[in-house]
Design a protein around this nucleic acid. Sequence first.
DNA 1: TGGCTGACTTTCG
DNA 2: ACGAAAGCCAGCC
Length: 112
Amino acid sequence: MAKDHSNFFNDVYDVARLIPEGRVTSYGAIAAYLGTKGSARMVGWAMNGAGAYPDVPAHRVVNRQGLLTGKAHFNPPSAMQERLEAEGVKVIKDKIQDFEQVYWDPMKELEL
DNA sequence: TGGCTGACTTTCG
DNA sequence: ACGAAAGCCAGCC
């Protein structure tokens, strides 16, 4: 473990671990929470390395539309939807239902 | 140093 | 609702 290649990855993983079960957040939200550390793409890319970190629930991180854009990077890809459904999140056609209800914003929840 | 990449986001047609 | 393009910035040759 870790030798973090960069603090940026560590920050992304840290926020991801804070996501409660049955909740999801967006890449942009994490990027905004981290501030100037990177753009939304960086969060997604950082998640690419999350596969090596078992405590990082990458499946709880989706895009702004609540769409499971990153599911293709899972193994198997269907694991992302199955995990979300197992936590009580409804997913239809790779899209989260009631997204507003399950959305978890680090900017609000953590700074509140 | 410089150029390419990417699990995003927003805007235009 | 969908497709395409631009903006975005850290990491990797």
